[in-house]
Structure formats: C-alpha cells, structure tokens
Design a protein around this nucleic acid. Structure first.
Lengths: 351, 351
DNA sequence: CTGAAAGCGCTTACAG
DNA sequence: CTGAAAGCGCTTACAG
C-alpha cells in the first residue's frame, strides 16, 4: 500500500484520478467537467480550456467501465478460435484488430481448443464482460467450434469457419474454388497441359471444393483427364505422391497443384531428388501462402493466398455495423483468394 | 429494436436481464437478491433458493462492468506483443490464458508490431478499459516493445522479452544458455566429439548466450576448439554452413548444434544431399521445437524447447499475485528449457 | 452559462 | 431475516 511509487517490491498502484478530482481542482461540478471534456453542452471557452488543461495535468483518463455501463456498450469484442497455434487465426485476428482499433474497441482472444467446457467458460466470461459482439474463427472451415453461439443476444460473425446451418448467420469464408481456379488457370496460361492435383484428406470440405474447381478448369480447357490424389496435409505425403506419379511408367505430369504449402514443399523436394527441375520440367503451386515454408522452398513457391487479413478486416467492420444497429444481410460470403507468384512455375508467357 | 428474436436481418438484441428484474419477480429487494446470489448475508434457505431459481429461469448474468466498477478490478489483462504471426507469442498467450481463465480473467491481445503509435493506442485502450495488469511479450528477447510501460500505475510483467533496464521490473525469459548446454551435453553423452555451432546473426543477444554455453561445455569436456558460425535464421544459411564445414578439406564435424529449427532443417537437407547420413555420420540438434519444421525434417529433429507455455503460465500467475497485492521480488527469472529427443542424433548410449 | 439530480447495474455496510 | 441507502465513476436531461 502507501503510494508505492518508489517501492521496488510492490509496483506503483495509485488510485486513478477521477472526473471528480478534475472537477474539484478546476472548481466546477462534475457535470460541467464531463461536458467540457466531451465537447458537450455550452460554456465559455475559458472554462472549457481550463478544465481540459487540469485534466491533462492530472493525467485524467476516463474510466471506461463507468462509461460502458452508461452507454451499454463495452467497446470490446471476443474472438473465439480453436486454432491453438494460430496459423489461420492470427492473420484473421490481425485484420479484425485493424478494423476495430480505430474505433476504440479491443479484442479478447479466446482459444477454446476443441473442448466444449473451455468453450463455455470463455463464452460465459465474454457475456459477463458484456462484449459488444463475438467473432467465431477456427482452423478449419468445416468444423464448428465446440460452442453454441446461436442465441447469445449479441451479434456474432463467423470468420473462416462455417456457421451452424440453420441460423441466419453471417459468415466470411475464403473462396477456395476460386483460389484453385486461379492456380490451375495460371498453369494453363503458362502452357502446362498435364496438370495433377495432390491434396489433403477427403474428410475436408475444402478438398472437394478445390478439386471440383480443378476438374472444371481442365474440362473447360479440354485438357487431360483430371487426376486427384488425396492424402495427408504433410510434406511426407508430397514425397509419396511424387513417387506414385513419377516413378510409374508412362507420361508424366508437367504441373502439380498442391492442396497446401507443406505438400508442395514435399513435392518440390521429391522432384529435385529425382533430378527433375522445378519449374523447368514440372511446375508446382501451393496453397495457403504460409511464408515460412513458401519462401524457404527451393525454388520459392508460387501459392494461393486466402487473404485472411482482409477477411478478418471485413468481419470486424461488419461486426461493428451490427453493433451500431445497422442491418446486415445474413449469409455466407466467399472472399476471393489471390495468387502469389514466386518461382516454382516459371515465368508467365512473355514474362 | 422490437425483440427481434425472429428477425433475420437484425440479430437478436434483447435487453439483458438485470438483478432488479430477478429481485422484482422474486418479490425481494435488489440487496437481498444480490446477497442470495453471492452467498452473502443471512436469510432463510427458502428465500435464497427461490431467488436463485428465479435468476436461473430468467437467465440472469451479472453485469461484469457494474461489478468491476465497484470492485475496482476488471478481471481483464492486456497482452502486448510485436510478434505478428505469433510463433513465440501464441504459446506464451496460451499459457497466460490457461493461468487466468480459471480466475475469470480474460485477455486482450494487442499486436503493436514495431509501431510506437500503434503501441500507444493499445496501451491507452487498455488503460481506459482498466485492465488489472499488462503482460509484455515479443518475438525477440533483446528487443523492447515500442512503448513505455514503466509508469502505468498497474502491474506489468515481461514474458519472453527483456524489461527496461532501470525499472524494477519482473520478467520471465527462457534460459538460453541452459538450453544450449542441454543440446551440447546431449551430443557429448552420445559420444560426439567434433561439435560445431551454426546459429543466427550476432546482433541477437541469445546468439551470444547460446554460443557461450556451447564453448563452456566444450572446454569443460576438453573437446576440440569451438567453432561458431553466425548467419541468418534460415534454411538457406543452414545449407551454406554445411558447404563451409563439409566441402573443405580436413576433419569433419560429427555434430551440428543449430541456433533454430530452420537452420537445422537446412543443415539436415544439405547433409543428405552430400550423401552424409543423419544421425549416423552427423548428429543435428535444433532450437525452438517448432513442431511443423522439427517434425517434417527427415529424420525428425531433436531440438530444444523453450517451454513457452509454462513461461506464459508463470507470467500469468505472477501477474495475478501482483494484482491481488501480494509482494513479488523484482528481477529477471530464467526458466529452464527442455530437450525434445527425436531422431536426428541417434539413440542415447544404451538407448 | 453552470449545477443538482437521476441513473447505468451492481455491492456492502448499516438499520430495523 | 430483510431492506433502504449510499456509492463505484461517469453522462445526460432538466432547472435555474
């Protein structure tokens, strides 16, 4: 206790200065002080500036809890996710934050893993803290969080995760089919003709969306019959797939579209080990634009970026609209991906 | 507006039920209702249970903002970091959260990048929201956040980042020298004798701490003169280092201790490309235990884990003590690392 | 032009 | 055993 500002053991813990303090030292009522600081009401310029400078001198900082109680708005939101180490959640979080910070709203990050009990605890905590809204995110589009967000009484936005089917929810997800199309059409534009697709497990919804787009582009272009190999989301699977594709007799692919960057990394390494040159002999495209693997691959990976930061930003802005009471059309919005061209496909024609 | 519960455009936004509501429907005063729910005061068991069941039925949830105002405690803390994509911050965050959730405290995640303006905005936001304390984290031990946390009037804990030197701050950091010692001694125990160290840029403090420990162990064991190669924190540098070490004439190392897992990955790959077998010909140890690279390396990497989750948990628990007014000795506490043994070193003797 | 009063949703002495 | 009152730190009609 004491004022403690020189106390090494007990960090400074002074009583924050209140509006009452500034009012008293400025010789006005708290009402007037409040109005002066909020640019409300009418008073002489002198009183207003006097009050302001007093507030500044005292280091007055309005108590947000008191303000929130009155305004019925806490200027906080919760971000729920089950993506523990945040490969996908963190870019979403960055976008959300970006959209909200300027509006003075802060975000509670809540990792619920896949544990309903944890999920409930976090939701309860948010609700008691009167968050203005919740953003539900995740590591996988087709897996719901282990919590029911359907009747909380506050706005909810889903970002990079599907909402419960029956709710009139608002969701932002990446356009995986569009992203796959970008990749395959890039190959086509570069003159590749024998394009295969090596991707993740068939239990993932995105696997089917991307494979569907891949098949569609091949059909549109009248190219060789599609060939889709499903496996794990790992480098190891990339190696195995290359063995299947290139160690067998017959015509070899000249392009491999991979379901994620780790598979692509495995494919590129396996190709190199076989003396096949990337991109000269075989072009490779990844998915996710996970910098650390895409950039470290030799050659660096051309890959599809899901624009997760923008997705988060959209989600944040939309949540703000909802909080402000503006109407928002429910539904699932697919946001476009973009192709990040590095060196694993060769230059574009004429490039 | 309206109750909106069936309105598709405007999500449900009902007025939350207050203590007053439950008091009225239970036919008691708010004071009594409050006491009933908080297990305070004395009253007949009947009233208490009646009030409780009413609260339950109405779905009453106390308004945390009001409670916080009274208790002078918001049950929130801020986690400041500049580690945008969270390789280090997220495990720390997970630990912090783990320590705090059971105590009902939620955490604001604030990414300040390296921008003082952003940092100030976040700090201001936290302070207005009356966070009970702040945890400062980062992506690098020897870089301070672009904000001054020294005189905020609330407890601050540094986690995985150094505090300002002159403050009587409390910090938790990893014991990098100890971690390095673990790695090098592991090699020694396995009978390796020509151990080199390939690490990051000399501008990093940890590079010197780890190199120092490496040299110390070699000296203690009377082993070959130390050899430290500093470069980038990248796979590419791992490749180059192997070229320097193994393409020159003379005796070759039988063990490489790497400054991070990416370098180790590069080293392992480069070794394989030269026909050298890991671990049979050369043992390799990494640093960070970054699952995704450690596990994907062939063979999987033995590596030093900085125990960042525990570090975060410690930081969280200590912050709680401080918030509760308990005294805590200031200073920098180094927390032990652990060696995660996979397959890049061969088995331990007799293993 | 300025202030007294009521109130946001709670909790906690203090009476009765 | 229960309730009226004061108060946390603010804001906002409403008087004067």
């Amino acid at each position: 206790m004491s004022d403690g500002s020189d106390n090494v053991i007990q960090p400074a813990r002074r009583r924050p200065v209140t509006l009452r303090d500034v009012a008293e030292t400025a010789g006005v009522s708290v009402a007037t002080a409040s109005k002066a600081l909020n640019d409300q009401g009418r008073m002489t310029v002198e009183t207003r500036t006097r009050i302001r400078s007093v507030a500044l001198q005292l280091g007055f900082r309005p108590n947000g809890l008191a303000q929130s109680l009155l305004r019925r708005r806490s200027f906080t939101v919760g971000l729920l996710t089950n993506d523990t180490y945040g490969r996908f959640s963190l870019p979403v979080m960055a976008g959300v934050s970006e959209a909200l910070l300027d509006n003075g709203v802060s975000v509670f990050l809540c990792n619920v893993e896949d544990d309903p009990r944890l999920g409930q605890m976090h939701v309860d905590a948010m609700l008691e803290k009167r968050v203005d809204g919740i953003i539900a995110s995740g590591k996988r589009l087709d897996r719901r969080l282990p919590v029911d967000l359907s009747n909380l009484g506050i706005p909810v936005i889903y970002a990079f995760t599907n909402p419960d089917p029956d709710t009139n929810a608002i969701a932002f997800v990446s356009d995986d089919a569009g992203g796959a199309r970008l990749a395959v059409e890039h190959f086509v534009a570069l003159g590749r003709r024998r394009i295969v697709h090596v991707t993740g497990p068939e239990t993932f919804e995105v696997v089917h969306q991307r494979a569907g787009a891949y098949r569609a582009v091949l059909a549109e272009q009248g190219l060789a019959p599609p060939r889709v190999l499903m496996g794990a989301w790992s480098e190891g699977w990339g190696h195995q797939a290359v063995a299947q594709l290139f160690d067998a007799p017959g015509e070899k692919p000249d392009a491999v579209f991979c379901g994620n960057d780790q598979i692509a990394r495995g494919v590129v390494d396996a190709l190199r080990e076989r003396g096949l040159r990337v991109p000269d002999d075989v072009g490779v495209v990844g998915f996710d634009n996970w910098e650390i693997v895409a950039a470290a691959t030799r050659p660096p990976l051309t890959t599809v970026d899901m624009n997760l930061v923008s997705l988060g930003r959209e989600a944040g802005m939309t949540l703000l609209s909802l909080v402000d009471g503006k109407p928002v059309e429910p539904g699932i919005r697919k946001l476009p991906c973009r192709l990040v061209v590095r060196q694993s496909c060769g230059r574009p024609p004429g490039g």
